[in-house]
């Protein structure tokens, strides 16, 4: 259980925790496909999600380039749903995706309301594995910047979650200690184990109600944080 009396600082993950990446990317693809009058793409998103995750995994281990990630995740998804599409079209979609994604800035239900209450009682921060400029764009476009006192990304820290160094970097920047800090994130490895490992308390954002094998505190919706904090 959470011992909230010691907590002064809350650290949030961004993608899939506050910023609804899946919804925003689905809307972006939908807009691009409609404009291109592409048909047979109904199952695109279902297939894209796991493929995208695996490409990000390889990218984060520096096995592939960013360009290859952008191309490969689309190529593999179109192959999986049996849509024949030229490389020119794939490159076009990849370019359009970067340009259009910032137009969609959905956050999870209750995000603003929850942050509005929490900011009165805690200092709020972000620890994210995304690249500097992309995450800044998301925070700015979704009107989230003002909530957070510090933002630590993997570019600044030089390593990605769950590496202890990025958490240490975030704690130092926030001028706080692990024992006074709590991490909220969706990724069991990067966020939950990463933060526990440096001695922070943790709340798992378990949107999909996955089995909680380690007995860590969890919420399925952001406003449930107000019940435990």
């Amino acid at each position: 259980m959470i011992q909230k009396e010691y907590i002064t600082d809350l650290f949030f993950d961004l993608d899939h925790t506050i910023y609804d990446f899946d919804k925003n990317s689905a809307l972006t693809f939908q807009a691009i496909f409609t404009e291109m009058q592409l048909i047979g793409v109904d199952n695109f998103m279902t297939n894209f999600k796991p493929i995208n995750d695996s490409y990000w995994e390889r990218f984060s281990k520096e096995e592939i380039s960013r360009d290859f990630l952008r191309y490969g995740r689309l190529k593999d998804t179109f192959d999986a749903i049996d849509v024949k599409i030229s490389d020119d079209h794939i490159y076009y979609i990849a370019d359009e995706f970067i340009g259009k994604l910032p137009n969609y800035n959905h956050v999870f239900d209750g995000a603003y309301e929850t942050l509005d209450v929490l900011k009165n009682n805690y200092r709020l921060h972000i620890i994210t594995n995304g690249p500097d400029v992309v995450q800044e764009r998301k925070l700015k476009n979704a009107n989230l910047t003002a909530y957070f006192q510090t933002i630590t990304n993997s570019e600044i820290a030089g390593v990605k979650k769950p590496h202890p160094q990025i958490f240490q970097h975030a704690l130092t920047t926030a001028k706080t200690k692990a024992e006074n800090s709590l991490m909220i994130g969706d990724n069991i490895n990067a966020d939950v184990h990463g933060a526990l490992n440096v001695g922070m308390q943790v709340v798992w954002f378990n949107e999909f109600k996955l089995e909680n094998t380690i007995g860590v505190a969890e919420v399925q919706q952001l406003n449930q944080l107000l019940e435990i904090l």
Binding site: R66, D95, I98, G99, P131, D132, V133, V134
Partner: peptide, 12 residues
């Protein structure tokens, strides 16, 4: 600009 709208990192 360090990063233009069509880029995701500096000097892409």
């Amino acid at each position: 600009k360090k990063v233009y709208n069509f880029q995701e990192e500096f000097n892409e």
